[in-house]
Write a protein that binds this DNA or RNA. Structure first.
Length: 293
DNA sequence: CACTTGACCTGTCCGC
DNA sequence: TGCGGACAGGTCAAGT
């Protein structure tokens, strides 16, 4: 579930909630995959440390700590990072929260701070992970060495984007933009949304897409990601922010989960097919697949 | 090598 | 209502 806008929303929320807090206790309900560190590493480098900052690169979250250590977190499909103050219920109105009292059966790790507040790492499908490591080692992670540019950074010009995506000329365009080494942060939702915006059929080979269409695709990717960050991300089923609240991008989605509904551009009914092994939503009238001769 | 497919898990929904 | 199968937003390893 969490793609760039969701992870960025969690990052923003956590920045407001946990910076300067001091870790006092960690309870791991499901190791080693969720949290592979040994007790002695945790005692030595996490307990007693202070949160300096919360950062993001692609879909990875990093909680930087004193003593030059960091917690690195990937939410994968169903991961959540939810903060709770001293009272164990969601922030705001009860309706804002998708989840009840914590920990619950999806809780993998519980972190406690010196002021009594807590941070929960929940993950129903157990694909996500949390790892405590020296901050300097983050750059050596294989993922960090291969991941492409941030789509919302000014450095990602259309020239750079076209150059990178052309390396996947033989792939279908949806697969190429889902590839984190092409650019960072696009997942299934925003792939479909941006391809609709650029009027490109998701199964078109990259080689059959013109440069100016790729430039438009990049523009649409930037647009949908920025819009979604503004809306607090997409909550399809699982995703919640650091306060347990849902995001509202889905209300603005043009194709994702809108099969059978009229296209906002032409009125044809949105269809759902499989492309690159993923559920794919598109308009069969304004996104026509082209095949090279 | 470039690209696609299956595996990792649990929960939910749909059809019989 | 019960049960089997398909499917779910990400990434990697294995296979073609």
């Amino acid at each position: 579930m969490p793609e760039l806008p969701e992870v960025e929303t969690v990052r923003t929320g956590l920045s407001k909630l946990i910076v300067k807090k001091i870790f006092t206790k960690v309870t791991v309900f499901d190791s080693p995959k969720s949290f592979p560190n040994t007790d002695s590493e945790v005692d030595q480098f996490l307990i007693g440390s202070t949160v300096l900052a919360v950062a993001r690169r692609a879909k990875l979250l990093m909680i930087h700590l004193s003593f030059d250590y960091s917690l690195v977190i990937h939410l994968k499909m169903t991961g959540q990072l939810v903060y709770r103050g001293e009272q164990n219920f969601g922030a705001g109105h009860p309706n804002d929260s998708l989840i009840g009292e914590l920990p619950d059966r999806s809780t993998r790790v519980q972190f406690e701070f010196s002021d009594g507040s807590r941070l929960f790492f929940n993950d129903q499908r157990k694909f996500g992970w949390v790892k405590l490591m020296p901050t300097v080692e983050i750059a050596n992670l294989k993922f960090m060495q291969t991941v492409g540019p941030e789509p919302l950074e000014p450095g990602l010009t259309k020239k750079v984007f076209i150059e990178r995506i052309r390396k996947r000329n033989n792939s279908v365009v949806k697969s190429a933009i889902l590839d984190q080494s092409t650019l960072a942060g696009v997942g299934n939702i925003y792939a479909d949304e941006s391809l609709w915006g650029a009027e490109i059929h998701p199964a078109t080979r990259v080689r059959d897409v013109k440069d100016e269409e790729l430039a438009e695709l990049l523009k649409q990717i930037k647009f949908v990601l920025a819009l979604s960050i503004e809306k607090g991300g997409s909550t399809d089923r699982n995703y919640v922010d650091a306060e347990g609240k849902r995001g509202s991008y889905i209300d603005f989605a043009r194709v994702f989960r809108r099969e059978g509904q009229p296209c906002q551009r032409c009125g044809y009914l949105i269809e759902k097919i499989r492309v690159a092994g993923r559920g794919t939503h598109f308009c069969p009238n304004c996104q026509i697949e082209r095949v090279s001769p």
